[in-house]
């Protein structure tokens, strides 16, 4: 859906923005890249689905359930999106 592949920093910004969209009371900038954002932002399973839907809206990448263990930190999720974005 985009012509130029996005960088890791771009995707980190996308992820943080999506977290704030799902949890407006959370400052996603304050969540360390290597921390488990679901705990940090107190996202339950419904919030997590909303987060993945928001990310799919922005990137076209739908993270399947099987890959959930690979996207538990902001950095891991952003890397995952970069890999699929250029694919």
């Amino acid at each position: 859906m985009n012509t130029t592949a996005r960088t890791l920093d771009d995707m980190i910004a996308v992820v943080r923005e999506a977290i704030e969209r799902v949890a407006p009371d959370v400052d996603a900038q304050a969540i360390p890249l290597a921390a488990e954002y679901r705990q940090e932002a107190e996202l339950d399973s419904m919030d997590f689905l909303a987060l993945l839907a928001a990310i799919e809206d922005r990137t076209g990448v739908a993270v399947p359930e099987l890959d959930y263990p690979d996207v538990m930190t902001i950095e891991a999720l952003a890397r995952y999106l970069v890999d699929r974005d250029s694919a």
């Binding site: 689905l49 839907a53 399947p64 359930e65």
Partner: peptide, 16 residues
């Protein structure tokens, strides 16, 4: 898991 496998996040069903 089988049911959700091919669905986008916005259509997945939770165990709850």
């Amino acid at each position: 898991a089988e049911y959700n496998r091919s669905l986008p996040p916005s259509e997945r069903v939770l165990i709850g």
